[in-house]
Design a protein around this nucleic acid. Structure first.
Length: 884
RNA sequence: GGGCGGUUAGCUCAGUUGGUUAGAGCGCUACGUUGACAUCGUAGAGGUCAUUGGUUCGAAUCCAUUACCGCCCACCA
């Protein structure tokens, strides 16, 4: 046994063990086909991000399962890594350049990419390594980066393969253009926000007539790209117009009036200006009616030459000028204020411009189909399951994925165009005569590397022979578990499933756990701008990583949001303190009694130890708790696991078991050694059960008790197995009645204002026949727990006393002074009233033929027992009242 | 507009196949430091389980309805 400090120094212990684990490479996974494996890939954090509480919860969840499985004998491989985060990083780098008064054009692509790598070395790695402070059991030797050489190879392989299969194509499409970052972004990378805007009603003259069609638009500056005006075919207002042409103002161009059922008769004037190059729906209308798509914008969202006199102006400037000009011409009918939704780029915050441009796309339909199947037939399970619906909905309506980004930071597209012929070359490696070719300047969407993560991290090469010989890939793929936030179910989870099936022919993971979102105490999302997100590293410094881990899991029900503020970490901290103190108490006693027995050896007869209700009860509780814990872990209900063990440790083990054995050891010193040996065995089991969730403190305690070599970690001890034979519900029930008795006596003392320090005399009488008689030992323990000088059975006291009728016992407490009879009476009468009500409902129930006919026999039995007990209790209360 | 959650004690939440006199932690009240632990102990107060209706012998639990809160998807020219 090592020295047991009175106070747990979590900072010291946690950093010590984290170092020991890493230095000894304890969590490095090897291919070991004699063992079942358990593999997990980390959701790689962004190199531009900071660690937030969400990461802490997410990684704690993964660590719990990895540690649990390791203790259950699996070869566990948890791969850490980081994400290059295309747009965000590009943004950060450009901002840095800007602060130096430079632009990326000034330094060129190569230098810019070099900056990115420097950033990654400096900050990206730190972010990931900070996870070490959380105590994660990742395999650091397998750390990957989504832009590293191996992953780049995988990305190129997949691109080329999909291109050759015809699943990647280049097309003119309306994309979401971020004019600030000057790149296309995917549908999933933008968000709608409400905005007040003006709705302009503009008069388009019917050619040759003094008649107008009035269109309503919020974006008059795009009118130079109008190639039609559309009305609903059923709209009576426009039936008489027939097929006519309208004069597009300012441009003075003729455009047709067309009929399309997309147009909503109710909105505005029922006439829609059709601008195919600058609106997705207009683009669709344009396709249906063979309209030309005229792009009137430059990439920086200024008007191009189609804007005539407004060319070169930013759209917001141009809008005002165009309106002014139209007003001058008397072509503005009216202007209304409206609130509508406007798309913003999530990363840059710019207003998204629908923009017609040439981009690379992945055809999603063929990939989505098998991916839908594996989720719906249960090969991949979502927790909670309801996300399947969301997944199905998205996958059923999946749209092609725009994968090209006009950035420099990322995987450059493996496409080369021939300088002379324009011929396209798409291979994993550049063409031999590279001087005649020019590579596509675009890079791929960040998710194009992340979607390969579950197999690319194991060295996948898209080479059947090599992949088959790749032991790691064969052994660790498919992975077993993925923990992530539900907001990237489409961006990431769905796409990993598609890629996994397409390239490995096998699902990428079996169970997907969607962890809760962490909100602040008021339920608001944690955000940098609100400043309501505590820095996890500060929380760790202040409370310890174990405390934070425990608290987060304790507060996080599967699939619901967590309201967290820093102070709630006290839950975990206090629990760990309690655990520490209980261990210390047991250790001190073990030391004490072991020394004693060495000095004065006790004869065998004298040390004979009889198992009593306390032992049977704690064994039963340990095993029934363990059973519940296993069920909860199997069902991914981690908060229930944490609550189970919390309650077992705090109430069963500390409040009752330890309190009882304290007395037992005092009253039976000859058994003391065995008593604390038993206690220690139980305590060590608790440490093992807790290790997955609080690895630091359990490792520290394990080493104090075991006094073993540092590298001998508790993380390789086996997780306690359930011993069903020890579960004894009768014992638990009888112990419950004992607890009720103790609480009842204490309660009676309190009601009669007897100080805890004052001894008193109590008489009890068992009134429930199905309960076993308490042994004299146990009666002595109760005496001590309640500070009684006498505890008699079955002898009603004379003189003054207070009484209480419990379900299994009637209790009489002798009082020296005057008895407050009125108060006594009041208490008893209230109890009588409650019980009578209760009995009435039971009587009704048990005389209800429907109940007797249809309820399960066990249920009826239980109700009858309740009825009998209530009757006996009522009788006893009446007796007590009579004497008063 | 479509979909999904939530509504239980002052606060945060459990309550897993319908059978409890509805639970926990925090907070609150009273008492307590004779050494495991005041980051603690003992005891106490506190709820017509959002509404309305239905199914059932029996509903916090199942179904429907309404209200409010939250999220996701689509989208308003």
């Amino acid at each position: 046994m090592k020295e047991f400090l009175p106070k747990y120094n979590f900072n010291e212990a946690e950093s010590k063990w984290q170092k020991v684990w890493e230095d000894n490479k304890l969590y490095e996974a090897k291919v070991d086909t004699t063992k079942p494996k358990y593999s997990v890939v980390i959701p790689p954090p962004n190199i531009t991000g900071i660690l937030h509480m969400g990461h802490m919860l997410n990684n704690t969840i993964q660590d719990i399962f990895c540690r649990l499985k390791r203790m259950q004998g699996y070869e566990v491989c948890w791969v850490p890594g980081i994400d290059h985060a295309g747009i965000s990083t590009q943004h950060v780098l450009e901002r840095e350049l800007h602060s130096q008064g430079k632009t990326k054009g000034d330094i060129g692509r190569e230098a810019f990419v070099k900056m990115g790598w420097e950033w990654k070395e400096k900050y990206g790695t730190i972010i990931l390594r900070q996870l070490r402070k959380l105590g994660v059991s990742v395999d650091w030797s397998k750390e990957r980066f989504t832009l590293d050489e191996g992953l780049n190879k995988a990305v190129r392989e997949v691109f080329v393969d999909l291109y050759k299969k015809g699943l990647i194509y280049k097309g003119m499409r309306i994309v979401n253009w971020d004019p600030k970052a000057q790149t296309a972004v995917s549908d999933d990378e933008m968000e709608y926000k409400e905005k007040r805007d003006k709705l302009y009603f503009i008069k388009y003259q019917v050619k040759g007539l003094d008649k107008f069609v009035i269109v309503a638009t919020t974006r008059p500056e795009t009118m130079f790209g109008d190639t039609a005006v559309a009305v609903n075919p059923d709209d009576e207002r426009y039936k008489s117009f027939g097929d006519v042409n309208l004069i597009l103002p300012l441009a003075n161009k003729e455009i047709p009036l067309i009929r399309d059922s997309y147009v909503d008769k109710e909105f505005g004037t029922g006439a829609l200006k059709v601008t195919p190059a600058h609106d997705v729906n207009d683009f669709e209308i344009g396709k249906r009616h063979n309209l030309e798509a005229i792009n009137v914008l430059n990439k920086n969202s200024t008007l191009n030459e189609y804007g005539l006199e407004f060319a070169g102006m930013d759209i917001f400037v141009a809008r005002k000028k165009v309106v002014a000009k139209l007003e001058e011409l008397g072509l503005i009918e009216k202007i209304e204020e409206i609130t509508h939704n406007v798309n913003y780029a999530e990363k840059s915050g710019a207003v998204i411009e629908p923009f017609l441009s040439e981009q690379w796309f992945v055809s999603m339909k063929p990939l989505a189909e098998p991916a839908l199947k594996v989720v719906n037939d249960g090969q991949i399970k979502f927790h909670p399951q309801r996300w399947v619906k969301t997944y199905n909905h998205w996958m059923g309506n999946v749209r092609d994925w725009c994968i090209s980004r006009q950035l420099w930071w990322g995987h450059q597209i493996p496409i080369w165009y021939h300088n002379d012929t324009g011929e396209i070359y798409c291979e994993v490696n550049p063409p031999a005569d590279i001087e005649n070719w020019k590579q596509d300047p675009d890079v791929l969407d960040t998710w194009f590397s992340s979607w390969l993560w579950p197999f690319s991290v194991f060295g996948w090469e898209n080479n059947a022979a090599k992949d088959k010989a790749n032991e790691q890939l064969q052994y660790f793929y498919s992975t077993d578990f993925l923990a992530t936030a539900a907001d990237i179910i489409f961006l990431w989870v769905a796409r990993m499933i598609m890629a996994g099936l397409e390239y490995m022919g096998e699902i990428p993971f079996k169970d997907v756990y969607f962890n809760a979102l962490i909100r602040d105490g008021q339920g608001r999302k944690m955000s940098k701008t609100l400043g309501n997100s505590p820095d996890p590293l500060d929380v760790i410094d202040k409370y310890g990583a174990d405390a934070m881990r425990f608290t987060l899991v304790y507060l996080a029900p599967l699939g619901n949001d967590v309201l967290y503020d820093e102070a709630s970490t006290e839950i975990g901290r206090n629990f760990i303190t309690k655990l520490w103190n209980a261990g210390r108490f047991i250790a001190l006693n073990n030391e004490k009694y072991n020394e004693k027995s060495e000095n004065e050896p006790i004869s065998k007869e004298k040390s004979a130890y009889d198992v009593d209700i306390i032992d049977e009860w704690i064994n039963s509780r340990l095993n029934s708790s363990l059973k519940a814990i296993n069920e909860n872990l199997d069902a991914f209900r981690l908060n229930d696991y944490s609550k189970q063990i919390y309650n077992f440790v705090w109430s069963d083990f500390c409040d009752w078991y330890i309190e009882l054995i304290k007395i037992k050891a005092t009253l039976k010193p000859e058994n003391a050694k065995q008593i604390f040996a038993n206690a220690q065995a139980n305590y060590l089991a608790i440490l093992k059960i807790l290790h997955p969730i609080t690895p630091g403190v359990t490792e520290e305690l394990w080493h104090i008790f075991k006094d073993i070599d540092e590298a001998n970690s508790i993380s390789f001890e086996s997780f306690p197995a359930i011993d069903e034979s020890k579960i004894n519900l009768k014992i638990e029930n009888e112990f419950g009645s004992l607890q009720e008795l103790v609480t009842g006596i204490r309660n009676l003392r309190g009601e009669n204002n007897i100080p805890n320090s004052k001894k008193c005399t109590v008489y009890i009488n068992k009134i429930n026949d199905s309960i076993t008689e308490l042994s004299s030992d146990i009666l002595n323990y109760i005496k001590s727990l309640c500070n009684l000088d006498e505890l008699n059975s079955a002898v009603k006291p004379e003189g003054n006393y207070a009484s209480k009728i419990l379900p299994d016992y009637e209790v009489y407490l002798s009082l020296e002074g005057l008895v407050d009879k009125a108060k006594q009476k009041e208490k008893l009468e209230k109890e009588l009233e409650n019980l009578t009500k209760f009995l009435n409902t039971l009587d009704k129930k048990l005389s209800n033929e429907g109940f007797l006919a249809k309820a399960a026999p066990q249920v009826i039995e239980v109700e009858k027992e309740k009825q009998n007990n209530a009757k006996v209790q009522i009788e006893k209360i009446k007796e007590a009242l009579e004497v008063l």
